[in-house]
Amino acid sequence: MSEACKQGEWVEIHYVVLKPEERSHDVPDDTKKVPLECWIKGWALSSGTTGGQIEIRTPANRIVKGTLTRVNPGYAHTFGPGVPELSSVGRELKAMLKEGN
């Protein structure tokens, strides 16, 4: 689903820095098969829609051009779900502290 941004909105863009054939000779084979890609966030210099080209002004005041990927991008990383292999470690150690002295 495409999203639209207005001029001045906080957005994320994407561009390819190096195509596979332009990559450094010393990268492993699996890495050499794929491009070096880049994502940067900044303020849109014009309106635009995701998938289209747009220019942004970055927090360091650079002007960078790329494909609009997200509008008002946020974060989705979390503390993670419960992990059964970890959930009893604390209880075990507390029990061990109580044993003996």
């Binding site: 190096l18 990268v27 794929v34 890609e37 880049c38 994502w39 940067i40």
Partner: peptide, 8 residues
């Protein structure tokens, strides 16, 4: 500036 893997 978020990049993919690589020494470049």
């Amino acid at each position: 500036v978020q990049l993919t893997v690589g020494p470049e």
